[in-house]
């Protein structure tokens, strides 16, 4: 249920930033965050109602892409899918933990960058 904590951070950001008011915003959720979208949107709508905010938003899930700092190989989460429930849970809480449980499929290095699909961010155009 830490989806509530993330929803709260979104609502507070929108409430505090004038440039976001009245805009259509995209809430981008990284694949690594692996949040329950139903709970997240429920929490978001409850908080919007509670704080009497107007928020025109859409939620977009961004696939995770990694690039190995050792060999330059780019890979996706699908190529290194985790089956262990606890490992998935730990990445869900702290996306950087992917570097504990995943290695580059090409050279087995643990030194890789998360290029996309890490966590939560808000954008507007």
């Amino acid at each position: 249920m830490h989806e509530w904590a993330l929803a709260e951070s979104v609502v507070k950001t929108v409430g505090l930033n004038k440039e976001l008011k009245g805009k259509k915003i995209s809430i981008i959720i990284g694949e690594l965050q692996d949040i329950n979208l139903e709970i997240f949107e429920f929490a978001l709508n409850e908080l919007i109602k509670d704080r009497k905010l107007e928020m025109n938003y859409c939620v977009v899930v961004e696939d995770a892409v990694f690039k190995c700092n050792n060999c330059g190989f780019e890979f996706s989460m699908k190529e290194v899918t985790k089956k262990d429930k606890m490992e998935k849970e730990n990445i869900h809480f702290i996306p950087e933990m992917v570097k504990v449980f995943v290695k580059c499929p090409n050279c087995a290095s643990v030194d890789f960058e998360i290029i996309r699909g890490r966590g939560i961010k808000i954008s507007y155009e």
Binding site: H2, A5, L6, S9, N69, M86, E87, N90, F93, I94, P95, E96, M97, K99, V100, F101, V110, D111, E113, I114, R118, G119
Partner: peptide
């Protein structure tokens, strides 16, 4: 962070360290 790493080694560069700290501080009540 040892809770989330299941006591395994965590190899992180500086930008990832900063992200991990922000994440933990954001969600810890």
């Amino acid at each position: 962070f040892s809770f989330f790493s299941m006591s395994k080694p965590i190899a992180l560069r500086g930008n990832s360290v900063v992200d991990a700290i922000k994440e933990l501080l954001c969600v810890t009540l």
